[in-house]
Design a protein around this nucleic acid. Structure first.
Lengths: 123, 123
DNA sequence: CACCTGTATCGACAGACGTCAACATAGACA
DNA sequence: TGTCTATGTTGACGTCTGTCGATACAGGTG
């Protein structure tokens, strides 16, 4: 599926150690220490205002993806934007792909869905 | 009895500045800087493994509430537990009430629902 | 009253984190 | 090849944060 083997930005890291289907709704049962350790990273990634804006810029961008150049205007320097996008990638919330000169980011729906699942109240 | 005016723990802070109904799904439109600033605090609160466990312990506890004594076994000291519960309170995710000797925490459903709403994918 | 238990606060410390300027790298194009 | 633009990486800096022991406060019980 998808990448045969040549996606530098995608392949560099083992993707998301946080991975996809993790935990039941938080109301269902207490998380184990291990589950909490892995899952907290996803929430932490959205716990910074700049990252939250970057994420919403990607998520709401037409076509479901955005070039870095489209979303860089969030009030911090370019290296800082790059740093935050990396954090969002490492958390599994975004994926990136270089196409020619530009790098495009898109939301990883399964991870976001997993987060939403955990916040489901009184299932 | 139901204290007429002496609820130190509850009254001390203006509850959640984060408040309740904030933002549309992150896929709908980019957050403003101000929205992101206020909203990131909620995700940040769940971005720590210990806090995430404490939250799930409260959320999944029978009766919808839990005494601190019920949830203190998360591997950190009692002051640290108290510190984290305060953070969750300040973020608006939990409320607390002292009843006699014990203090009970419960989930603030509206705030959690707001977070879930933001994570809704593709409206 | 004194004493005990449950919970919050204080003060200190180490480590994590956000930020930037400087530099490095990758493509496009001449 | 060289140069230009877009993006990532490095190193440094100050601030925030998680943690603990010591202490304070609240309420129950004797």
């Amino acid at each position: 599926m998808s990448n045969a083997k040549a996606l530098p930005l995608l392949e560099r890291e083992p993707a998301a150690e946080v991975a996809v289907p993790c935990c039941p709704p938080l109301t269902e049962r207490p998380l184990t220490a291990d589950e909490a350790e892995r899952t907290a990273g996803m929430f932490k990634a959205l716990g910074d205002p700049v990252r939250l804006r970057l994420f919403s810029l990607v998520a709401s961008h037409e076509g479901g993806e955005a070039c870095v150049c489209d979303i860089s205007d969030v009030g911090v320097s370019q290296p800082t934007v790059s740093h935050h996008l990396k954090k969002l990638r490492e958390a599994g919330l975004l994926t990136s792909e270089r196409r020619g000169t530009w790098v495009y980011y898109r939301v990883e729906p399964s991870v976001v869905a997993a987060m939403g699942q955990m916040l489901k109240i009184a299932g």
